[in-house]
Design a binder for these strands. Structure first.
Lengths: 187, 187
DNA sequence: GTCTATAACTTGATAGAC
DNA sequence: GTCTATCAAGTTATAGAC
């Protein structure tokens, strides 16, 4: 993979537009303008528009995986702390980090089959990490339910925050994460 | 509002395509073909593409509201039954009913400001119904947390099922609803 | 690495006949 | 209510100069 600093910078700008407008409504002209170049020059860095999307989604998923791993390594080994750390990490990559993870979650369907197949191992690794942490919480009796469904519900609740959460409001992403974990914990 | 049977039928078909392809990628030619007419004829029924989206979203949100109201009227008045009924109704409109509610949830942002303003009362009424039911569950000590956040998390978990749930699998939408309610209930 | 210019095509929408 | 024919504008992507 091409990993020039220039390309990384352009990928970051693309992620921002993809979140604001959606992939389909974002034109190469809009991308070029945001990057301060003309639309023709874009294709020196990316083969086509699809490749820009793939680059954004790869970065977003990779970031999420790295940050989540780091978070659970650095936190106490208790199931509750690990669950909280995962939820916090997820919202951190969604709101505090760049927008790439949001694009990965909401525009995955727009990837062509080849790119999707190539990147699915990253997504699978991230979801496996979640299931692992949730398994720990289940075995500790902290939460209850089916491991698969619990993961899906928690991730759904977290992902949907993109649609309503206002980062300029009074609550921090960490507050949200803690509230969600509190909601599902047996008392 | 124009409510001819023909227009209703076309709206139903549009909803299906909007779910499959997304609003932006669905062209008026695709819509026309699905409806068995030519693209020019479409504009006899709808002023423009935006109006088709507005019609779909209005129907989807209206349906969701009607079905949810009926569900909690017909179920026992206990907080747990009502919560369960709301979750089941939500997934019913998402999967068993037509696709219009899915479009309402995932393509709301594509509405122009005028249409969004005109339809927001429907969405607000639906969300108010949720908050009402959740308030009951909170007061009964069935669940715990902030009423606003709990509503958002539950709706997020339910909405995101669209992205992973396979209606042809072994679980029914009702199973999902019950599992979700079970997950958040204090024991 | 960026520019200009443009090819090749698709888009939403209209006009007028039937 | 549907058709055909078509328009104007916008789309992705390419070619070759600098």
């Amino acid at each position: 993979m091409n990993e020039s600093p220039r390309r990384k910078e352009l990928t970051r700008l693309a992620a921002q537009l993809f979140v604001q407008e959606g992939f389909d409504r974002t034109t190469v002209r809009m991308l070029a303008q945001e990057m301060g170049i003309k639309s023709g020059s874009l294709f020196h860095h990316f083969k086509d528009k699809q490749e820009i999307l793939a680059a954004v989604i790869e970065e977003g998923t990779h970031n999420a995986l790295v940050i989540a791993r780091r978070s659970i390594e650095q936190c106490p080994a208790e199931p509750e702390a690990r669950l909280r750390a995962m939820a916090r990490a997820h919202l951190e990559t969604l709101f505090a980090d760049r927008n790439a993870h949001v694009v990965a979650l909401f525009e995955w369907r727009r990837l062509d089959p080849a790119a999707s197949a190539h990147l699915s191992h990253l997504r699978d690794a991230y979801e496996a990490l979640w299931v692992e942490v949730i398994d720990g919480a289940l075995q500790a009796g902290l939460i209850h339910g089916d491991r698969f469904l619990v993961s899906r519900f928690i991730l759904g609740a977290l992902n949907w925050t993109v649609r309503w959460y206002d980062p300029n409001g009074s609550r921090t992403p960490d507050d949200l994460a803690d509230e969600l974990v509190g909601m599902i914990m047996a008392r």
